[in-house]
Design a protein around this nucleic acid. Structure first.
Length: 325
DNA sequence: CATCCGTGGGG
DNA sequence: TCCCCAAGGAT
């Protein structure tokens, strides 16, 4: 069945190897949220080499993490992972927690990721429900063409109901369910002929009826704030240091949307503005050696002016380093 | 519960 | 070309 198929068909991914730490598993799970394996794998290796333990990442700036994140997308994931690393180092002895409740209390870790870490890093027996699993269950168990809208409670119950008794088997089963959804029981162009569940799949036995549920909405991207934010952040990622606002202005014509997105990036902590008016990744502002008695003290250079942002009538964001008026 | 949050590759 | 995603989470 599924366990046998796993032994022969599972991909040899680095975060599945026996010597991979729970920290390595956690990083992979965060990166794999909405991002394909092929793009995650090389970055994952770089991250593990650079930050072998959570405290190592906690010691780096957020900007450094964002740079290493590169273009994996949804950079808030990187910010939250940095936050989580800080909390793990500070509150959990630099050890990734193993219980679902504690994991879920960490930023960026929801139901899926908490259960994935508990299962794949610690071998626990618990339901792991992602979009692949929901689709496999919808077909193999319910005979539907695809999963309907998520229903956390019901989805969890469905998977718990089919989990093997044995703890180790259950963990492998969970991984196999996801792998089946990723390789065979895909959303489109599914490879039923190669499926280990072919003879018992409810969908197959029912003649593979088309999906009947509510239509799934496809998110637009072109022209959205998401695209604009991506362009703005890409400028800062590509620059070695703080940049003047004019370099951000050129990436998008619509001034209103551009300003709105810049403000939202500042609000999200993905971008910072120095007192000299330049924009930079978080933690990468201009610093100078302090003249304080304490040798390690550093501070952001401050220039005299009336405030970070100019009065509303002069626009949203300060453009020069001359201060207001 | 619906919407928002990036990105690059495949059909 | 354009459309549709690909191992979610937070609000």
């Amino acid at each position: 069945m599924l366990l046998g198929w796993w032994d022969t068909a599972a991909r040899d991914l680095p975060w599945r190897r026996p010597d991979c730490t729970a920290w390595g598993v956690l990083i992979s799970e965060i990166m794999l949220q909405q991002t394909p394996v092929s793009r995650v794998e090389p970055i994952w290796h770089e991250w593990l080499a650079r930050w072998p333990v959570p405290s190592a990442m906690a010691a780096s700036s957020q900007g450094e993490v964002l740079r290493m994140w590169g273009k994996l997308g949804y950079p808030r994931r990187a910010m939250r992972l940095h936050e989580a690393a800080t909390a793990i180092a500070r509150d959990h002895g630099d050890v990734v927690p193993s219980d679902i409740e504690t994991l879920e209390s960490l930023p960026g870790i929801g139901s899926y990721t908490a259960r994935a870490v508990a299962t794949f890093a610690y071998g626990q027996k618990c339901a792991v429900v992602d979009t692949n699993v929901r689709r496999v269950v919808a077909r193999a168990v319910h005979g539907a063409g695809d999963a309907g809208p998520p229903s956390t409670k019901r989805d969890l119950r469905d998977v718990e109901a089919i989990l093997p008794e044995d703890q180790h088997d259950a963990a492998v089963f969970s991984a196999a369910l996801m792998e089946l959804g990723a390789l065979i029981c895909t959303a489109k162009n599914q490879k039923c002929a190669d499926c280990p569940l072919y003879t018992e799949c409810a969908w197959q036995l029912a003649g593979r009826p088309a999906y009947a549920g509510p239509e799934k909405k496809v998110q637009k991207f072109a022209g959205t704030d998401r695209q604009v934010r991506g362009k703005l952040l890409d400028v800062l990622r590509g620059a070695p240091g703080p940049v003047p606002k004019i370099q951000l202005d050129v990436v998008w014509n619509d001034v209103t949307q551009r300003e709105k997105c810049l403000v939202s990036l500042l609000s999200d902590g993905l971008v910072e503005q120095s007192h000299d008016g330049l924009f930079h990744l978080p933690g990468e502002g201009i610093v100078e050696q302090s003249h304080d008695s304490s040798p390690s003290a550093r501070r952001i250079v401050q220039q005299s002016h009336d405030g970070l942002f100019p009065p509303p009538d002069r626009g949203i964001v300060q453009q020069s380093n001359k201060g207001t008026i």
